[in-house]
Design a protein around this nucleic acid. Structure first.
Length: 1101
RNA sequence: GCCGGAGUGGCGGAAUUGGCAGACGCGCGGGAUUCAAAAUCCCGUUAUGGCAACAUAGUGUGGGUUCGAGUCCCACCUCCGGCACCA
């Protein structure tokens, strides 16, 4: 490599700044002296009187590829903040760990036939070696990995807390499920017809039929029914839900793990919709609080917006539409626009809607069933591929619009989804684009009920064939004034508003030529009123041939009013919405309602490398029992074959890898009074089978049944008892839960475990949690600074907030939010070079030349000139930069400084290895400034004399570096230090005291060289806890300032005046400046602006 | 389509939030040192014109507000990120 030559030569000769030796030396020193160990309250050496700071990095996923240069960017930033905070006298908690469960490691392990534990350990070792090269000041004694048994036992414990909790809407918090049982037993809560537990005072409303329903008391239910009610309330529950099933990976995936085109994020395999019984977490119960508490955290606004959008609150109404068949049944719809009820001309049900089957008429049944079946089997890919075209079928049934008693047809279409609202909509094609498209496709009536206040009637679009359109358009263009006003043009969904009705904004775009060239684009005129089109055509000498249709999707505002809408005529849409909602409530036809896009979290995966659930399934009854906390952890069984059962078939039943762990799966145990299960380790499972049963065969039957109960348990199993807790209990045969938790589980709470990683009795002690996370006088609480990439904007950050709030509700945590301040570092990009075919050329084939100061890349062999692009680092683009190489050549301090110098931390910016030597030179210069370079005969600038200029510059620097570090503007802090060093070289001298203070300023950014210089300057101890230098305000103010003098806003000269000079004096001096005097000669000064300390501006005529 | 973010020299980026556009670094040019080279130190480096002083233009494009706009307002273009039939 060409670049190597000069570097090698340089480092051979340059023995002054020996970065490799220095960095090794200090990394060892910090480790041996536990320099960065931070004790907890109550620990020896803990200093209670100091302020505290918890600075957290998003922990890495230990992939086989190791770190890329993007990881250390955020880590370096937090390290600087931490080192600075220590020097400012803070107790700093700065831990690091590994998010080591999950698909990538497992997939790698499967592909290479190695156990994931082994690859994970190797990857962690490698990544930790890399992290340690940078000299970060982590407290390594707090290291955790989510795959550690001692860690995941508490992940399982938290799951149990969720399983054993329910969300009390009345109290707006999660409570132990035992309290719900009490409420039900006491009659304070009753069970409605949908098996939901509700306070006895409120009346449940049936979501589908809309009828008020009766309720049952707890004691009216049998034991199984009671269990079902309770299970349906839990925060962690099992449900049969439509899931993303990826047969190639053999697992279900969360929505977030599926790409836009319906493939798996990992591996790009096809994903299918399929109903499967899965573990779910009831995050939707927290939708409102997750939304509200965004307001109390200090996060970047774009991330807050993304979370708000993800939660997706919309306010509207639920409206009940009775069916027209006199059956007494009805349909509930959710709408955000109840003001448009009078414009509803049809209804649409999602294909999965339970009423589709019952209300479809016999004539339509075949069509509907075929459509529903087809919709069900369509994969995500197919669904998104044809987003534009609306499909659907008529059910044959009608509903009655409650506001005007009109009969409207009910359709089934897959543009309505079961998962949102009620799975049914009232369609208002005149004012909703999707409904409009659908109505157009199936020729359904379109009835506009909103118009602009300044127009006589609603707007319509008259659609014409291309030819007819062109004729009318050209006639109209010749004399617009004598025709009815055209409000705009319609080109297949593209609206072009007219400004005054006589001319269009961009008439050149709609030339007759354009019209001729685009025969397939539908075209129309936007006119006012139903007759507007006829009038226009008539005036142009044509006969009206097409039916007018309407679409008005203007924003709600006072410029609009409702028409043909009975009692709300003349109201604005906003007022109409309010009025009609009240009316609906009074008439018992509907009610105000809020909906969220957020769905419950699909929490199980059919994979090996994840946390096992602490759940047992009773083989005889199928009942689910949570494990007793005393039986945690549930360890992953050792398996030789841990691969998932991948398949090409979309409908194959999932068989999790854990189902093959026969020894591990079947356990004997008892059920305690509170419903938890305890395992009887010593009791052989075989003895639970009845006498005379072929045990081996019977066990196989149980195993084959998966987590379902076996047939005929009475003959298969023997009644055996054992005494536990002083009572004789029946021994049960259990099979363990075979699913595992998704990768996000471990990362949901790792920031809590760092606080108290060795605790064997609790996931975190209250003392540690309150000290580090319970920020005083702050509602939110949480980690003081959390730095990571924006790719976790919704998933990890939303899931963590959810878990945190659950644990907060249950009394385990002191504040409601996990991360108080969040900072997203920008992505580090890289240059790549492409040839004319768009193929990336790797660095080995590049030839860079300089052409008039401009660097141009050519292909080494073909000589073709290449195009430079900036892109994400990826193997396929051959533009990946590895930190190891850079550190090997220039050292960790240079690497750290370079990444911080590239630009603002939050900005995406391209890596450019050619810029690194500039930073390296700076550090060499610092070294030579203080110690010289004896090998090259360079004397240090360190001396006895303390230059006043240097002293002044140093005070300014202390102020500036402090401010910029606190604002995390590291690039400008470094630039300021470079300027200072340049200044010292000009002055030719720096005193020992000045050098020492400078070294302390440099220390957070380039800690190794700073420690070495500090030691060479005669200090025995680390500088990590040296007080940050102070600056003197008096040293910073200048006695005189140079002001630019502007004439009419243009700089014509500069004058130097005393800093406290009077305005009159400044102006007088300014006018005397020769060039300025020249510019104002013979002109009158009409205005004089003096900005103190900034500039003078003379306005002249 | 919707929601974010960003466009400044050959390059990465500064600009105290309305006050000297281009700090600092890279690259490039020149000089000192050296037998020579590397390294180092110093000077210059937005463009155009001029020996120079200086003049003119200039922060994606077009308009506006202002004594003064990279920064504020309106319209548009390009790139990056996220979401996407959410009723």
């Amino acid at each position: 490599m060409a670049g190597c030559f000069c570097i090698t030569t340089r480092s051979n000769r340059m023995s002054g700044y020996e970065f490799t030796a220095i960095e090794k030396k200090w990394q060892r020193y910090w480790q041996e002296n536990s320099t960065f160990h931070q004790p907890n309250p109550g620990d020896p050496y803990f200093k209670p009187d100091r302020p505290h700071l918890y600075v957290l990095d998003m922990f890495p996923y230990p992939s086989g590829a190791g770190l890329h240069v993007g990881h250390p960017e955020g880590y370096t930033a937090t390290d600087i903040v931490c080192r600075y905070a220590r020097m400012k006298g803070c107790n700093v908690l700065h831990p690091m760990g590994y998010d080591s469960f999950g698909l990538p490691a497992e997939q790698y392990a499967v592909e290479h036939g190695v156990h994931p534990r082994k690859t994970t350990e190797e990857n962690i070792a490698n990544i930790e070696r890399q992290i340690k090269m940078f000299g970060f000041s982590y407290d390594w004694s707090r290291r955790i990995a989510t795959t550690d048994v001692e860690y995941y036992r508490w992940t399982q414990w938290i799951f149990l807390q969720m399983y054993n909790s329910w969300y009390d809407e009345a109290d707006d918090r999660a409570r132990p499920i035992s309290e719900l049982v009490h409420l039900l037993e006491s009659g304070e809560y009753v069970v409605d017809l949908l098996d939901r537990a509700v306070p006895s005072g409120t009346l449940g409303i049936d979501a589908i039929t809309g009828e008020p329903v009766g309720s049952r008391m707890w004691h009216e239910l049998d034991v199984d029914q009671q269990r079902e009610v309770i299970d349906a309330c839990r925060l962690a529950y099992m449900d049969e839900v439509p899931v993303n099933w990826c047969p190639a990976l053999g697992t279900v995936l969360a929505n977030e793990e599926v790409t836009n085109d319906g493939r798996s994020e990992r591996g790009n395999h096809p994903v299918y919709r399929r109903a499967l019984k899965q573990w779910m977490l009831r995050i939707t119960a927290y939708a409102e609080r997750l939304l509200a508490d965004i307001e109390i955290v200090d996060w970047p606004e774009p991330i807050k917006i993304m979370q708000r959008n993800w939660i997706g609150r919309s306010d509207g109404a639920e409206v009940t539409f009775p069916l027209a068949n006199n059956s007494g049944e009805s349909l509930d719809v959710f709408t955000t626009r109840p003001d448009t009820l009078f414009g509803s001309t049809y209804m649409v049900l999602a294909p999965e809607h339970p009423l589709v089957e019952t209300l479809t008429t016999n004539e339509q049944r075949a069509d509907v069933e075929a459509y529903v079946a087809q919709a069900r089997h369509r994969s995500e890919l197919e669904r998104t591929a044809e987003t534009k075209d609306k499909t659907g079928v008529f059910t044959g049934a009608y509903a009655i619009n409650p506001v005007n008693d009109e009969q409207i047809p009910i359709w089934v279409a897959d543009y309505v989804m079961m998962g949102y609202g009620t799975g049914a909509i009232m369609a208002v094609p005149a004012h909703d684009e999707r409904d409009f498209d659908f109505a157009q496709t199936f020729n359904l009536p379109i009835r506009p009920i909103i118009k602009r206040r300044d127009e006589a009637a609603p707007r319509y679009v008259g659609a014409l064939s291309g030819e007819a359109f062109a004729k009318v358009y050209s006639v109209w263009q010749q004399d617009p004034a004598s025709y009815p006003k055209i409000r705009g043009l319609y080109f297949g969904g593209f609206w072009d508003a007219a400004d005054d009705g006589t001319s269009l904004f961009q008439p050149e775009d709609v030339s007759t030529q354009w019209i001729a060239e685009h025969p397939d684009v539908p075209k129309g005129f936007i006119v006012v009123g139903k007759d507007g089109m006829a009038a226009l055509l008539g005036a142009a000498g044509f006969k009206a041939e097409s039916e007018p249709f309407a679409l008005c999707v203007a924003d709600l505002n006072e410029e609009l009013e409702l028409v043909d809408s009975g009692p709300i005529n003349g109201l604005s849409p906003d007022d109409g919405k309010e009025t009609i909602t009240t009316w609906l409530e009074d008439e018992d036809l509907g009610r105000a309602s809020v909906n969220y896009k957020l769905r419950d979290w699909l929490f199980s995966r059919q994979r090996y490398w994840g946390e096992p659930f602490p759940i047992l399934h009773d083989v005889a009854t199928g009942a689910i029992h949570p494990l007793s906390e005393d039986d945690l952890p549930v360890r992953l069984p050792e398996m030789d074959d841990f691969s998932p059962e991948a398949s090409d078939e979309a409908d194959r039943p999932p068989r999790p890898p854990l189902s093959r762990a026969a020894q591990w799966r079947l356990v004997a145990g008892v059920v305690m009074d509170d419903g938890t299960a305890r395992i009887e380790e010593d009791f052989p499972v075989q003895e639970l089978f009845a006498d005379g049963v072929d045990v081996e065969q019977a066990m196989q039957n149980v195993l084959d049944a998966g987590m379902e109960p076996v047939d005929d348990p009475e003959t298969l199993l023997a009644p055996r008892t054992v005494t536990v807790d002083g009572r004789e209990r029946q021994l049960r045969l259990f099979t363990r839960e075979l699913n595992t938790m998704p990768q996000w589980a471990g990362s949901c709470w790792y920031y809590l475990r760092y606080l108290d990683p060795e605790n064997h009795d609790r996931f975190v002690s209250p003392e540690a949690e309150q000290y580090w996370m319970g920020v005083d006088n702050d509602k939110a609480g949480g980690v003081d600074l959390y730095v990571g990439g924006a790719e976790h904007a919704v998933l990890h950050l939303l899931y963590s907030r959810f878990w945190h709030k659950v644990l907060f509700d249950l009394g385990y945590l002191s504040k409601p939010e996990p991360f108080h301040k969040l900072f997203n570092q920008g992505m580090i990009l890289s240059f790549a070079y492409k040839d004319s075919r768009g193929i990336t050329i790797g660095p080995a084939d590049l030839e860079m030349t300089d052409e008039g100061g401009e660097t141009v890349a050519y292909h080494k062999t073909t000589g073709e000139q290449l195009q430079k692009v900036v892109a994400k680092m990826s193997k396929s683009l051959k533009n990946v930069v590895k930190p190891d190489d850079v550190i090997g050549r220039y050292g960790a301090d240079t690497f750290r400084l370079y990444e911080m110098f590239m630009g603002p931390l939050e900005a995406a910016k391209p890596w450019n290895t050619n810029d690194v030597p500039g930073i390296f030179r700076f550090l060499q210069r610092v070294w030579r400034m203080i110690l010289g370079d004896t090998d090259n005969g360079i004397e240090p600038l360190l001396g006895e004399t303390a230059s006043d200029d240097v002293e002044k510059a140093l005070h300014k620097l202390i102020q500036k570096v402090g401010e910029h570090l606190e604002a995390m503007k590291f690039n400008t802090a470094i630039a300021a230090m470079m300027e200072f060093v340049n200044g010292v070289f000009k002055a030719g001298t720096i005193s020992r005291s000045q050098a020492e203070r400078f070294v302390l300023l440099l220390a957070p950014l380039a800690p190794h060289i700073a420690e070495e210089l500090w030691q060479q300057l005669g200090h025995a101890d680390t500088l990590a806890y040296e007080p940050w230098p102070e600056y003197d305000e008096a040293m910073i103010v200048e006695e005189s300032v140079e002001l630019p003098v502007q004439v009419n806003g243009k700089v014509r000269g500069r004058v130097t005046v005393a800093a406290d000079a009077a305005e009159d004096n400044i102006v007088a001096t300014a006018k005397n400046e020769p060039n300025v005097a020249d510019s104002i000669k013979g002109k009158t000064i009409v205005k004089t602006i003096v900005v103190p300390g900034r500039l003078v501006n003379l306005v002249v005529h």
